[in-house]
Design a protein around this nucleic acid. Sequence first.
DNA 1: CTAATGTCTCTAGCAACTATAGGTTCAAGG
DNA 2: CCTTGAACCTATAGTTGCTAGAGACATTAG
Lengths: 141, 141
Amino acid sequence: MLTIGKLAEAAGVKVPTIRYYEQIGLLPPPERSAGNQRLYGNRAEERLAFIRHARDLGFPLEAIRDLLSLSDRPDQSCEAADAIARAQLSAVRARIGRLRALEAELERMIGQCAHGTIADCRVIEVLGDHAHCAHEHRKEP
Amino acid sequence: MLTIGKLAEAAGVKVPTIRYYEQIGLLPPPERSAGNQRLYGNRAEERLAFIRHARDLGFPLEAIRDLLSLSDRPDQSCEAADAIARAQLSAVRARIGRLRALEAELERMIGQCAHGTIADCRVIEVLGDHAHCAHEHRKEP
DNA sequence: CTAATGTCTCTAGCAACTATAGGTTCAAGG
DNA sequence: CCTTGAACCTATAGTTGCTAGAGACATTAG
Ligand SMILES: [Zn+2]
Ligand SMILES: [Zn+2]
Ligand SMILES: [Zn+2]
Ligand SMILES: [Zn+2]
């Protein structure tokens, strides 16, 4: 049985994060000690590791909630789980695409600046020029 | 002179966003009509376009605040402005690097799944395996 | 003149935590 | 056995960058 601090350390998350996950129902309320402190067993540790890894991969908590409830029904087809993962993959790819456009524009504007005064700064100029860019850059959520 | 709605339309932002920018001091309080409605001139339109473009490039509002106050002093060296832009570029690159690692892992786990039952699902398995990955994937802010 | 928008202020909500305050419990050293 | 300090408890508020709603006033088209 682990205290919340030990569990946090083991899983690589902060203590308040665990309490937060409990509050929103991602982790079940654990046992308590005589003095009302949380005590976690193996199940909780695995569940938290699952959550953490999914978070590391960028899954939103709602998707993780769905994945967890799927993983509680091992006999069903994994199609729904795979669909969640594919959705996450395409979200990641969309973000990469957008960021690469930003990278290109930032590179260009930094590269073109002659590093003189603000009045001649290419960075300030490009930012202020509201018609300069043919590309659409929006909208990173 | 533009009303807030027209300005919003012209700049491609929502009306409450403009009020929000005013509230946090990114846009100065504009003139008001007899009936207390906001009226904006060219200066405000340009400033908002600047903000929007910088936001589109992913600059945080604090950085934009600094860029705006720099752009009000055209005689100074643009070094500070360029440094902000370089910081943003490296933040973007860091995000891209991390996302590409996520992309690779998501691809691998989706590709390896035989699409049977949850019990055999590679997606669920990889997420639950807290020691599977040699790579570090953390921490996208 | 009236009806339909548009605008005003203020408050609350989103994700996913993080930080603080003020109090309780636990483990170890003396 | 007792004290001290760390770790724990709850509850609330703050973070970022907006967005949505309520209820009241202003403007404009027909
Ligand atoms: Zn410059
Ligand atoms: Zn651009
Ligand atoms: Zn599968
Ligand atoms: Zn991994």
